[in-house]
Amino acid sequence: MDGLIYSILGDPFVQMWQMPDFFIQVIWEGFVSGILYALIALGFVLIFKASGIFNFAQGIMVVFSGLTLVGLHALGVPAFVALLMTIVVMYGLAFGIERLVLRNLVNQPDIILFMATIGLTNILIGGGQWIFGSETKSMITTELLIPTGSSVWEPGGGLVIFQHIDIAAAVIAALLIVSLALFFSKTKVGRALRAVADDHQASLSVGISLNQIWVITWFAAGIVALVAGIMWGARSDVSFSLQIIALKALPVLVLGGFTSVPGAIVGGLIIGVGEKLFEIYWGPLLGSGVEGWFAYVIALVFLLFRPQGLFGEKIIERV
């Protein structure tokens, strides 16, 4: 029994202390995957805030945008033109979804809209595999001028490796978040978006077109998805299995709160770092693969004590 308690509460920390370079490496790896979780969660939050729709298709939008980019490049389109064309495709997707799906489902209960996005997920999976094939593809990293080397840092005789892709991912994600924040607070459209998030009817009454706003939010979520798709594709590959990993954005949302942009980021980082640490230091006690469910169980525990998340608005029910 003492041995068990030691291996849970003692040994992992001793390992962290003895090999600080490895510890830093694990934190860094967790940090980078946390950024990617945060990006996916950000797409969810944008749509949830603007329309109250829980967009289940966000994960597949990440895959779809990545596939479109790679597929266009494979047709011989130069990388940056392909990037622009992908952005156009994401706009077309947002427009089509609003026109064909959302507009017809106004005023339906949330569960119906949620299920419509599951149907949408199916369409995007089937369509994506139909057009681009189901095999995994590698992201056009060098063509997009994303650095691929690695830097080595040696703190006190240790060894920590930073992939340049990961650094680029962190920087790009930070830029994206800053520009989104500026867009929300400084531009007219951004203010309209915030007004819609606050109150649909009031914003309608001051002349904001809800349909237009929805297209813009889905487009913004599509852009976030594209960035997440590029970064994730550069780290591993572009494949449909990413869709299951993208479900991890859900526990991130629970942790951060469904309506909070900073919450999505902080939640993503907590989940990313937490699951890596747990996998490396506590995972061997349970057998490997705990990464698959750790995030969800953390979210489950969290839900029991603070259902609104770290930064979410308090859930008040009125009758």
Binding site: V101, N104, M115, G119, I123, L124, G126, Q129
Partner: peptide, 16 residues
Amino acid sequence: NVSLVAIGMLIVFILI
């Protein structure tokens, strides 16, 4: 893949 797309569309259609 066609049937995936078709089922997705049918779901959306029937929800509407």
